[in-house]
Simulated scan of single mutants.
Amino acid sequence: MTPPTSRTWGKRGSTPVVRVRGRSQRRFSTAALCCYRAGERSRLIHRPKRHTDHRSGGRQSFARTEYRDLIIAAHQQLNGPIVLVRDNLNVHKDRRMRAFVDAQDWVTAYHLPPYAPDLNPVEGIWSVLRRTTHANAAFTDPDHLIRRLRHGLRQIQYRSGIIDGCLTGTGLTMATPRLQGQ
């Protein structure tokens, strides 16, 4: 992850350069759910993951089972049915994931249209994260990055107004008619 810079300065006539060691090797993934229920505060449920075996050809992203476990954890935390609105990530459309969702009476799933990140409230969370806790940060090692990531997500998690703002930014509301079905 290259460090996002929000502000910098330099002598007039010279362009500031931010040096970054190494290249992105997709060592980390984060999955998140923005949860909304009428009359209650919005919630953010997230799971960051460090991929330790990425160099030896191991997974470089969340597995279907990890997404499944996140949905189950959300159901237990929210203590109610879930309407899941997903983007078109290949794992979300996997036949085994569809079978899991179809087998649960407490999950209803819809897919966003292709190439529509502007309709996904979680994309707003990533944007807020990059502009706040990750802005102007040069991470010293992978542990430093994961600590800052968890800290930033926790800060957002306790501010339901930010999560509400991410839904507002999509133009969707709690009363929006049904999106495209599966």
Rank of each mutant, 00 (worst) to 15 (best):
T2D: 03
P3F: 06
P4S: 09
P4H: 08
T5Y: 06
R7M: 13
T8P: 01
K11F: 11
R12Y: 07
G13P: 03
S14Y: 05
S14T: 13
T15E: 08
P16I: 09
V17D: 07
V18P: 01
R19A: 09
V20M: 09
R21C: 00
R23S: 05
R23Q: 04
R26N: 08
R26Y: 03
R27C: 05
R27H: 02
R27M: 08
F28D: 02
A32H: 05
C34W: 04
C35V: 15
C35H: 04
R37V: 14
G39L: 08
R41H: 14
R41A: 15
S42C: 15
P48Y: 02
K49P: 02
R50S: 04
H51P: 01
H51M: 08
T52D: 10
D53I: 06
R55T: 05
S56M: 05
G57A: 11
G57K: 08
S61Q: 13
F62T: 05
F62H: 13
A63S: 13
R64T: 08
E66T: 13
D69E: 15
L70Y: 06
Q77P: 04
L78M: 15
N79P: 03
P81T: 07
V83Q: 14
V83I: 10
L84D: 09
R86L: 14
R86P: 03
R86F: 02
R86E: 11
L89M: 05
N90Y: 01
V91A: 12
V91I: 15
H92P: 10
H92S: 05
D94T: 06
D94Q: 09
R96W: 03
R98K: 07
A99D: 06
F100Q: 01
F100H: 03
F100P: 03
V101G: 01
V101K: 02
D102W: 02
Q104M: 12
D105M: 10
L112N: 05
D118V: 04
D118Q: 14
L119E: 09
P121A: 13
V122N: 06
E123L: 11
S127K: 11
V128F: 12
L129G: 06
R130W: 02
R131D: 12
T133L: 09
T133K: 13
N136K: 12
A137P: 01
A137W: 06
A137N: 02
T140W: 00
D143H: 09
D143C: 05
R147H: 13
R147K: 11
R148N: 12
R150A: 10
L153H: 14
I156F: 04
I156S: 04
Y158V: 15
R159L: 00
I163V: 12
I163T: 11
G165W: 00
G165D: 03
C166R: 10
C166T: 14
C166F: 01
G169K: 10
G169Q: 11
G169W: 06
L172T: 05
T173G: 07
T173K: 07
M174T: 10
A175C: 06
T176G: 11
P177T: 09
Q180I: 10
